[in-house]
Protein backbone atom coordinates (compact mmCIF):
# COMPACT_ATOMS: atom_id res chain seq x y z
CA UNK A 1 0.00 0.00 0.00
CA UNK A 2 1.56 3.21 -1.11
CA UNK A 3 0.01 6.60 -1.25
CA UNK A 4 2.21 8.30 -3.75
CA UNK A 5 0.84 11.59 -5.00
CA UNK A 6 2.58 13.34 -7.82
CA UNK A 7 4.61 16.24 -6.42
CA UNK A 8 5.15 19.15 -8.75
CA UNK A 9 7.30 22.24 -8.32
CA UNK A 10 5.87 25.28 -10.08
CA UNK A 11 8.25 28.19 -10.39
CA UNK A 12 8.87 31.33 -12.35
CA UNK A 13 12.55 31.79 -13.14
CA UNK A 14 13.90 35.21 -13.93
CA UNK A 15 12.36 38.61 -13.68
CA UNK A 16 9.04 38.59 -15.50
CA UNK A 17 6.23 39.21 -13.07
CA UNK A 18 3.32 37.52 -14.78
CA UNK A 19 2.30 34.68 -12.54
CA UNK A 20 -1.38 34.22 -13.36
CA UNK A 21 -0.66 31.38 -15.75
CA UNK A 22 1.52 29.60 -13.21
CA UNK A 23 -1.19 29.95 -10.58
CA UNK A 24 -3.94 28.72 -12.90
CA UNK A 25 -1.90 25.66 -13.84
CA UNK A 26 -0.95 25.03 -10.20
CA UNK A 27 -4.60 25.17 -9.23
CA UNK A 28 -5.56 22.70 -11.97
CA UNK A 29 -2.89 20.26 -10.84
CA UNK A 30 -4.12 20.50 -7.24
CA UNK A 31 -7.64 19.80 -8.42
CA UNK A 32 -6.29 16.76 -10.23
CA UNK A 33 -5.04 15.44 -6.88
CA UNK A 34 -1.39 16.47 -7.13
CA UNK A 35 0.72 18.16 -4.49
CA UNK A 36 2.04 21.40 -5.89
CA UNK A 37 4.90 23.27 -4.28
CA UNK A 38 4.50 26.82 -5.49
CA UNK A 39 7.74 28.78 -5.41
CA UNK A 40 6.50 32.01 -6.92
CA UNK A 41 8.36 34.75 -8.70
CA UNK A 42 12.00 35.57 -9.33
CA UNK A 43 13.48 32.16 -8.83
CA UNK A 44 16.98 31.28 -9.91
CA UNK A 45 17.58 27.89 -11.53
CA UNK A 46 19.69 27.06 -8.47
CA UNK A 47 16.89 27.83 -6.01
CA UNK A 48 14.37 25.87 -8.09
CA UNK A 49 16.50 22.75 -8.24
CA UNK A 50 17.48 22.99 -4.58
CA UNK A 51 13.79 23.10 -3.70
CA UNK A 52 13.13 20.14 -6.00
CA UNK A 53 15.80 18.12 -4.18
CA UNK A 54 14.44 18.83 -0.70
CA UNK A 55 10.90 18.20 -1.90
CA UNK A 56 11.86 15.02 -3.79
CA UNK A 57 9.68 16.42 -6.58
CA UNK A 58 8.54 14.25 -9.47
CA UNK A 59 8.07 17.18 -11.80
CA UNK A 60 9.45 20.69 -12.27
CA UNK A 61 7.23 23.08 -14.19
CA UNK A 62 8.66 26.42 -15.26
CA UNK A 63 6.53 29.36 -16.33
CA UNK A 64 8.46 31.75 -18.54
CA UNK A 65 7.04 34.70 -20.45
CA UNK A 66 10.19 36.77 -20.69
CA UNK A 67 11.82 35.09 -23.67
CA UNK A 68 14.60 33.66 -21.53
CA UNK A 69 13.26 30.13 -21.81
CA UNK A 70 16.27 28.59 -23.57
CA UNK A 71 18.73 29.77 -20.90
CA UNK A 72 16.48 28.84 -18.01
CA UNK A 73 15.40 25.42 -19.23
CA UNK A 74 18.97 24.51 -20.15
CA UNK A 75 20.35 25.59 -16.78
CA UNK A 76 17.60 23.88 -14.78
CA UNK A 77 18.11 20.68 -16.77
CA UNK A 78 21.87 20.76 -16.11
CA UNK A 79 21.37 21.32 -12.42
CA UNK A 80 18.76 18.57 -12.21
CA UNK A 81 21.18 16.11 -13.72
CA UNK A 82 23.98 17.25 -11.42
CA UNK A 83 21.69 16.85 -8.39
CA UNK A 84 20.49 13.34 -9.11
CA UNK A 85 17.14 14.49 -10.51
CA UNK A 86 17.90 13.53 -14.10
CA UNK A 87 15.02 11.05 -14.08
CA UNK A 88 12.40 13.62 -13.08
CA UNK A 89 10.16 15.39 -15.56
CA UNK A 90 10.98 18.93 -16.62
CA UNK A 91 8.27 20.83 -18.45
CA UNK A 92 6.75 24.26 -18.52
CA UNK A 93 4.85 26.88 -20.36
CA UNK A 94 4.75 30.42 -21.59
CA UNK A 95 5.37 32.17 -24.86
CA UNK A 96 7.73 29.73 -26.50
CA UNK A 97 8.14 29.84 -30.31
CA UNK A 98 7.85 26.58 -32.24
CA UNK A 99 11.47 26.67 -33.38
CA UNK A 100 12.59 26.90 -29.75
CA UNK A 101 10.32 24.03 -28.79
CA UNK A 102 12.33 21.95 -31.23
CA UNK A 103 15.55 23.00 -29.52
CA UNK A 104 14.06 22.24 -26.11
CA UNK A 105 13.23 18.72 -27.29
CA UNK A 106 16.90 18.28 -28.10
CA UNK A 107 17.65 19.16 -24.47
CA UNK A 108 15.21 16.49 -23.35
CA UNK A 109 12.29 18.77 -22.62
CA UNK A 110 9.70 16.98 -24.71
CA UNK A 111 6.76 19.24 -24.30
CA UNK A 112 5.99 22.76 -23.23
CA UNK A 113 2.61 24.45 -23.17
CA UNK A 114 1.40 27.78 -24.37
CA UNK A 115 -1.66 29.97 -24.80
CA UNK A 116 -4.67 27.93 -25.93
CA UNK A 117 -3.51 24.63 -24.48
CA UNK A 118 -6.18 23.25 -22.23
CA UNK A 119 -5.55 22.44 -18.60
CA UNK A 120 -6.69 18.84 -18.89
CA UNK A 121 -3.98 18.28 -21.48
CA UNK A 122 -1.36 19.51 -19.02
CA UNK A 123 -2.77 17.32 -16.24
CA UNK A 124 -2.82 14.27 -18.54
CA UNK A 125 0.72 14.89 -19.76
CA UNK A 126 2.07 15.16 -16.23
CA UNK A 127 0.14 12.13 -15.03
CA UNK A 128 1.44 10.06 -17.87
CA UNK A 129 5.03 11.23 -17.72
CA UNK A 130 5.41 11.33 -13.95
CA UNK A 131 4.56 7.67 -14.27
CA UNK A 132 2.85 7.25 -10.95
CA UNK A 133 -0.79 7.13 -9.93
CA UNK A 134 -1.82 10.41 -8.38
CA UNK A 135 -3.78 8.80 -5.59
CA UNK A 136 -3.16 5.57 -3.76
Amino acid sequence: MTDRRIKVIIAKPGLDGHDRGAKVVARALVEAGMEVVYLGLQQSPESIVRAAVDEDADVIGLSILSGAHMTNFRRVKELMEASGLGDRLLTGGGIIPTRDQEKLRELGIDKVFGPGDDLQGIVDYIRERAGRPSKG
Binding site: A26, A32, V36, Y38, K135
Partner: peptide, 11 residues
Protein backbone atom coordinates in the same frame (compact mmCIF):
# COMPACT_ATOMS: atom_id res chain seq x y z
CA UNK B 1 -12.23 17.16 -2.39
CA UNK B 2 -9.36 16.41 -4.75
CA UNK B 3 -6.71 15.00 -2.44
CA UNK B 4 -4.31 17.53 -3.93
CA UNK B 5 -2.60 20.36 -2.10
CA UNK B 6 -1.26 23.81 -2.88
CA UNK B 7 1.92 24.10 -0.84
CA UNK B 8 2.83 27.77 -0.67
CA UNK B 9 4.98 28.17 2.42
CA UNK B 10 8.22 28.30 0.47
CA UNK B 11 7.17 31.60 -1.10
Amino acid sequence: FSGGAFLGDRV
